[in-house]
Write a protein that binds this DNA or RNA. Structure first.
Lengths: 135, 135
DNA sequence: TATTACCCTATAGGATTACTAGGGTTTAAG
DNA sequence: CTTAAACCCTAGTAATCCTATAGGGTAATA
């Protein structure tokens, strides 16, 4: 299951992509428009900024803005930033790999093989979808 | 992310499928062989029994056994029993549907559409994979 | 210089996860 | 018919994560 954090983040980014031409967007705008708790959204946009997906301008008339064209922003990057691993098991994660405690040998683990299939499939969708596709 | 509960359950079922010809299998056997905490596994097998995937025989010489041929046991059934919804959002779940609080209209929600894609893809894998494929 | 809007830390309440404890009940074997 | 094996069931618990809020600090602009 996706966390609300990720879902909210995606909705916020989509909102920004829709209003892309109009410069900066304020937290409050997005929050009310997309029904996201203000302070929660604030922390989400902050992490998106830290990972280089968003830029921000302080002071009056400030706000957040996309650092890349929507068509350049892949789902893989967004979701990994907000949610973490895309894989369903740590032992099949490309970016957050971790060995299983119980499994003596990954190559012969049947669950491992199955989850690699799922991961590859999901990854293909996320790689081929950009923010522009969501608008 | 899959819970350990689901992962352990899948491993246990696979173990049972491998030793399918030999009648009942005891919890202790599976637990030691697959490195699963005994009592935890007990509760997992219990729920698999309640949903009709496993049968059990009490008393000396008893144990658990598969109620269907491995080739008849679909991943969808197993995973839904142990993990719950397969979808990444409640609003795209077939079996555990729930409306989102924030979303006024699902049909125009971009995140919704994306997650339907992912669900359909994952579902196709799980529908076409049986316990026999894992052995 | 006042206001706006982002920036940052801390934390609280609730849910979920991964177990563990402790015993009850049924069944088959000796 | 007794005993021990093995499933059955109910609680509970420590740790972690999730969602969200509080409260103020800082930079920039009008």
């Amino acid at each position: 299951m996706l966390s609300k954090r990720t879902k909210y983040g995606l909705k916020a980014l989509t909102y920004m992509a829709r209003n892309h031409s109009e410069g900066t967007v304020q937290i409050a705008m997005i929050a009310t428009s997309e029904n996201i708790p203000h302070k929660f959204l604030e922390s989400i946009l902050l992490t998106l900024k830290k990972t280089g997906l968003l830029g921000a301008k302080k002071g009056k008339g400030g706000g957040y803005y996309l650092l890349k064209e929507p068509a350049e922003m892949k789902m893989t990057d967004i979701i990994r930033t907000l949610e973490g691993p895309i894989a369903m098991l740590p032992c099949v994660s490309l970016n957050y790999y971790e060995k299983c405690d119980d499994c003596p040998d990954e190559d012969t683990c049947s669950v491992h093989k199955l989850m690699i299939q799922v991961r590859d499939n999901t990854l293909q969708i996320f790689r081929n979808t950009t923010l522009a596709d969501l608008v």
